[in-house]
Design a protein around this nucleic acid. Structure first.
Length: 491
RNA sequence: CGGGGAGUGGCGCAGCCUGGUAGCGCACGUGCUUUGGGUGCACGAGGUCGGGGGUUCGAAUCCCCCCUCCCCGACCA
């Protein structure tokens, strides 16, 4: 798996000379086989691997640190939007799941149900949460009595479990980590405004500014909508193979759950009213998106903001002067506030080490070797561009600073340019199917409609979102027929 | 659930048809060598061959039963 040459063909391995193909990367190229490339990056960059139970995932430290940084970026924005973190239980009474009709229908096939505990069969089975909508609403009903209790803005970070037919590390696993926000508002307009605020100020901002992945925002068609929602808003990104990935969703739940769970409040006049709600989430899928949006044939490319290590200082060879200089540079960069790792291993060849750091996506590599050092210089390598420059020792901190300051923007620009080359505006369903097969087609929704959506589905295509022709979000008064559908293949 | 495939050192596989007590690549350990883009050489450690039963002097190999996993068709953060 780690070696593209070590395939099933044993005789070939035996006959093959020791040398591997010169100058080839450690990975299958993205163009050759994107899914395989993805799996190899996940394995070789030590991001994650499969757990012992089908569909489960072990997130390794390198991958988890990336997740922690994404999480921090999202969390601080959630708090800025006024929500507070809380925690609700993993186990949900089965009966709760049945209270909202569409919700039951949507989740029933994905549920894991615990039937035994303490060595005996449970009188009432408990569901392992696939989402916490129901438990949280049960408590909302208790906590909300007056309009003074509103809005109630709660978020939780947790794991959820859903039966999955085709698991893929980070993208679709049986158990995954996420954040789910749940809110209750006095009226529809307030709920809508909050759902949109989360969509743009929390999700879009974190994804574009921190993860450096450009997204399209819009709302889902009825077919793609969250089970039980009136409207589902989404951030959609294009991956390196032209397929779409939903990176975050924010739902306007209307009063469906409020009615199912009896969440009512007394308004200023004393009248009893049902609340209007929202829910929203992003998950560890973001890590998968990061890999697929930015990765290249040499591995992961991390925006500095998310990189566990921003700079690796590499001693090219064992040499006292080299080690001293490398160590001094490491200290200097650390003092400047960078996350730096000093790689002074002498038991591993230089080539191996550079390939490893490249696979892991570390944004900047500072190579300290005797040759450059004799001239008072080191080699600074920019991961996302794969450019090298000789930099005087005194200029290293400045060079690193410049790269760290620009890398995120450049990655985003590159991803955006790629998306644009793969996006076309078309006028018919047939054209949309053609363009959508390799990228995004923008087509008037009235040309698609629900029947068109079915036809697209037969070709593995979906409407990723609906938006205004200028890319803006639909306003309350906008009819879907006046909107543009973004059509593409998706994960 | 329907169709196809696979279980053999940590990983990926060969061996099975034509039974004779297990091998290759990678990874791992030790030593030397090398280190400016996956160094090279030598030596070494590591396996209840998914489980159970049967046939046989002898089973990874043949027969029966069971278990597990993977791939393809009914979905999503």
């Amino acid at each position: 798996m780690t070696d593209a040459d070590a395939t099933s063909d044993g005789t070939r391995a035996a006959a093959r000379p020791a040398a591997r193909p010169a100058a080839k990367g450690a990975l299958t190229s993205r163009a050759e086989d994107f899914p395989r490339w993805y799996q190899e990056v996940v394995a070789l960059a030590e991001l994650a691997e499969n757990g012992p139970v089908r569909g489960t995932m072990v997130i390794r430290p390198w991958g988890y640190e990336i997740w922690e940084r994404l999480q921090a970026a999202v969390d601080e924005r959630i708090k800025a939007a006024g929500a507070h973190n809380a925690y609700f239980p993993l186990f949900i009474p089965e009966a709760f799941m049945r209270l909202e009709a569409e919700h039951v229908e949507g989740f029933d096939p994905e549920l894991w149900v615990v039937t035994h505990g303490g060595g005996r069969q449970l009188e009432e089975p408990v569901v392992v949460r696939p989402t916490s909508e129901t438990v949280i609403n049960h408590f909302f009903a208790k906590w909300i009595q007056s309009h003074r209790d509103l809005p109630l803005l709660v978020n939780q970070w947790c794991n959820v479990v859903r039966w999955e037919l085709r698991p893929r590390l980070f993208l679709r696993t049986t158990e995954f980590l996420w954040q789910e926000g749940h809110t209750a508002h006095a009226d529809e307009a307030d709920a809508r405004a909050y759902a949109l605020r989360i969509l743009t100020d929390v999700y879009r901002d974190a994804i574009e500014e921190v993860a450096a992945v450009p997204v399209l925002v819009g709302h889902k068609t009825a077919r793609e909508r969250f089970a039980g929602a009136m409207r589902t808003w989404t951030c959609e990104a294009m991956m390196g193979d032209g397929k779409a990935l939903q990176m975050g969703t924010s739902h306007e739940l209307g009063q469906n759950f409020a009615k199912a769970f009896g969440i009512q409040y007394s308004d200023a006049t004393g009248a009893l009213r049902y609340v209007w709600q929202t829910s929203w989430g992003v998950s560890t899928r973001l890590v998968g998106a990061l890999i697929m949006a930015h990765g290249d044939d040499f591995g992961l490319r991390l925006p500095p903001a998310l990189a566990p290590v921003e700079v690796v200082v590499l001693c090219v060879r064992e040499d006292e002067a080299v080690c001293r200089a490398a160590s001094a540079l490491t200290d200097e960069l650390r003092r400047a506030g960078r996350r730096v790792h000093l790689d002074a291993r002498t038991d591993t060849g230089f080539g191996r080490r550079t390939v490893d750091w490249e696979l892991k996506g570390v944004p900047v590599r500072v190579e300290v070797g005797p040759r450059d050092l004799a001239e008072g210089k080191v080699t600074v390598v920019t991961r996302h561009l794969r450019t090298k420059e000789a930099v005087a020792l005194a200029g290293v901190a400045g060079a690193v600073e410049r790269i760290c300051a620009s890398a995120g923007r450049e990655l985003r620009d590159e991803a955006l340019a790629f998306r644009e080359t793969r996006t076309a505006t078309v006028g018919s369903l047939a054209e949309a199917a053609e363009v959508g097969a390799a990228g995004f087609a923008r087509v008037p929704w009235r040309e698609v409609g629900e029947t068109g959506e079915l036809q697209l589905a037969a070709q593995a295509l979906t409407v990723r979102c609906l938006q205004r022709s200028d890319g803006g979000l639909a306003a309350a008064g906008d009819a879907d027929d006046a909107l543009v559908a973004v059509v593409g293949r998706s994960y």
